[in-house]
Design a protein around this nucleic acid. Structure first.
Lengths: 135, 135
DNA sequence: CAGTAATGTTTACAAGCGTAGTCGATATGA
DNA sequence: TCATATCGACTACGCTTGTAAACATTACTG
């Protein structure tokens, strides 16, 4: 099957970049589908050694970037993702492939293989994936 | 004197991050093995709409970060890479895989496959790579 | 030898990022 | 009802990045 045109991933709004720290927050929200500031903090503050204030800042920046939306719930907000994880991951992957491998995804795989970044498990998994695709 | 300033804490290999713009410069130097500021500019200034001054700044930042070294040649410098492209590419790839795919390279490939980011050519190339590795 | 062109160094400055404190509003418990 | 604990908004501040001008030095040309 050809790839060509698929879903129109982006409606036209700005492709506001999400920073690394912001991404960590997104990850939590994607994971639980929805979260409050406190919940996000609970999930990452310790791990990344952040204060709640930091999480709040990141959340508002993400709202500005329209990566998440807010729904009031009493005195606090419930945050929900506006962009899908799969889209984000896809975008980032593409950026990498474009920047480092001239847009050729196969080159990425080749690189991983050559530098032995692929475990045996990885290899057989990839094999399975290919087999699946061939059908 | 005791420990003087305390910025470079690591051993010899400092994982100084190379920014996007800096990377574009690196790419030129890697490509030709060695280059002067003028040569770098010639290669990218037009494409990225930079002035020579910008290239100069990026070059000195790269020197600071020990990504490239200088060798005087008359009144100018000849810049040479201190880090190998393959290492840089590997590092960046790894970062992505770690950050977005929990460190599992196979997941990346799976993702590319699922989102149809792999062309038929890519697929057969990957197949060949695998075949090669199996031997 | 003096003027000029080329080159690296310094300085600049806005925007983005990481990290967090403070403030004003408010829901809540006593 | 009143203090208190929370919550989001606003403010802050140093560092990095993108982009470049100004400056100092020096090699070369006439």
């Amino acid at each position: 099957m050809a790839k060509s045109d698929g879903k129109p991933q982006s409606d036209g709004i700005s492709p506001e970049r999400i920073s690394e720290a912001e991404h960590a927050v997104m990850e939590v929200i994607w994971d639980r589908g929805t979260a409050t500031a406190a919940e996000v903090c609970e999930a990452v503050c310790e791990k990344r050694d952040w204060s709640l204030a930091t999480v709040k800042t990141l959340l508002s920046r993400l709202v500005q970037k329209q990566a998440i939306a807010t729904r009031p719930d009493g005195r606090r907000f419930i945050y929900t993702p506006m962009i899908e994880r799969v889209d984000y991951v896809g975008g980032e992957s593409r950026r990498l492939v474009d920047r480092l491998f001239g847009g050729k995804a196969a080159s990425l795989v080749a690189h991983l293989a050559e530098t032995e970044a692929l475990s045996d498990d990885d290899l057989s998994e990839i094999e399975d994936i290919l087999k699946e695709l061939k059908r």
